[in-house]
Write a protein that binds this DNA or RNA. Structure first.
Lengths: 117, 117
DNA sequence: TTTACTGTATCACATTTCTAATACACTGTA
DNA sequence: TACAGTGTATTAGAAATGTGATACAGTAAA
C-alpha cells in the first residue's frame, strides 16, 4: 500500500479498513486478516497495525476475540451510520475547501460536472 | 488559527496562505506579513512559519527580498495555474474518497445537491 | 497436552515536527 | 552612521510516529 507521508500511517490504515467495511468488502461478523497478516500485506510494523485496530475497537466498528482475531461488528445500524458520517465528512471538507478557494456553492456543481467528463 | 493535529502545522500554514493568494485576498506583488507577525498571528513559532514560506518561495508563489519581506509573485499566469491545480486536487481527492466509500460518479451529484440544501 | 495461530505488551531506537532562544545578515530610513 | 525592521541560521530539547525485536497470553484443533 502507498502511504502519504503527511498523514500518520495508522490513520491511513484505519481509513483503509473503514472503507472496506462500509462498502461491504468486509461483511458484518466477518473475520479480518490478523495483525501479522496485515502488517505483511501493508509492509508495515505489527505495532502500527495494532494501533489502528485498537482504536477501531474502541470506536465499536470492530470487536476482538483474543486468540482468534478481529471481527467486523454485526451492528448494521452502526455501520450504516458510520458510512453516512464518512460521506458527510468528505462532503464537508470538499465544500469547505472549494469555498476557501473562492468557489461558491453555485459554481461547485458546474465544476464537478466538467470534472467528471 | 485552529490547527488539525494530524497534519503538520507548516503545511496548514502553506494552505492558508495559498488560499489567500489565489482568492486575491493577497494580491500579486503585495507584501505579506513578516515571519514574526505571522508567528504571533498564528500563535506558532517563527521557525514553523519560516519553513512554510521557504517552501512557497521554492514553488515560486512567493519571492523574498531579504531585509524587506516576502511578496506575492506577480506572475499572474502562475497564480491562475496554481488555483486551477488546487481546485483539481480537491476534486480529485473528493471523487476518489466518494468512490472508495462506494458512491458512484452518477450518485455524487445527487448527494452533493442534497447536502448543499 | 502440544502446537500453531491469534492479540497484547514492552523496550530501545530513529525520524519528523515543533518549540524556544539566540545570533547573524540585509535593507530602508532617520 | 545608527536603528528598527526584515529574513536566515544554529542549537537544544520535547513530543509524536514508526520500526524492530522479543516476550507474554488466550484459543482452537490435532
Amino acid at each position: 500500500m502507498e502511504f502519504k507521508d503527511n498523514i500518520p500511517i495508522y490513520l491511513q490504515i484505519k481509513q483503509y479498513l473503514y472503507r472496506q467495511i462500509v462498502t461491504g468488502e468486509l461483511k458484518p461478523g466477518q473475520k479480518i486478516p490478523s495483525v501479522r497478516e496485515l502488517a505483511v500485506q501493508l509492509t508495515v510494523n505489527v505495532n502500527t497495525v495494532q494501533r489502528a485496530l485498537q482504536q477501531m475497537n474502541v470506536e465499536g466498528i470492530l470487536y476482538t476475540k483474543r486468540g482468534e482475531g478481529n471481527f467486523v461488528t454485526e451492528d448494521t445500524d452502526l455501520l450504516e451510520k458510520t458510512k453516512q458520517e464518512l460521506i458527510d465528512d468528505e462532503l464537508n471538507k470538499f465544500v469547505q475547501s472549494m469555498n476557501d478557494l473562492g468557489v461558491s456553492n453555485d459554481q461547485i456543481h458546474d465544476i464537478l460536472s466538467a470534472y467528471l467528463k
